[in-house]
């Protein structure tokens, strides 16, 4: 690599971290959650199709099985983590006003935390009240 195309200072290269100070963590987390979501998503879509026409008791009983509840929680966590990372990049790319950018980033972070927590607690409620 020649000096012209290298944007990193020697110190930055030694530390191995970029300007965000977390190195490749964002990139790697986005890929790991993507990988986890391949089987989880296929499983969930298949399950939802098989639940078509099922009433509340049948759906609640399905969610209340420990394996299903566990997979659902993994799906929820991976989905919201992946979505938060992806939306963060979109906001950083297209929102240029510093104030609006920070406000949107915090809003997305807060929203994904609230939604994922609500979803996980719903699964746990069904797991512990229906067992």
């Amino acid at each position: 690599m020649n000096d012209q195309s290298n944007l990193r200072s020697p110190l930055g290269r030694v530390r191995g971290l970029g300007s965000a100070k977390d190195g490749t963590h964002h990139w790697w987390a986005q890929r790991l959650t993507a990988l986890a979501l391949i089987p989880l998503t296929i499983w969930f879509v298949g399950a939802v199709v098989s639940l078509i026409g099922a009433d509340h008791a049948a759906v609640a009983a399905w969610i209340a099985s420990p394996v299903v509840a566990g997979l659902l929680i993994l799906l929820i966590v991976a989905t919201f983590y992946h979505a938060a990372l992806g939306l963060q990049v979109v906001i950083e790319d297209y929102v240029h006003g510093e104030g609006a950018k920070i406000a949107l980033l915090l809003f997305v972070k807060a929203l994904t935390i609230v939604l994922s927590l609500s979803a996980v607690l719903s699964v746990l409620t069904l797991l512990f009240t229906r067992a």
Binding site: H56, I63, I76, T79, L115, S118, T125, L126
Partner: peptide, 14 residues
Amino acid sequence: TLLLTYWLVAAASG
């Protein structure tokens, strides 16, 4: 994900 969350919360609500 809003729909996913709504569906799960509704299932837990009754």
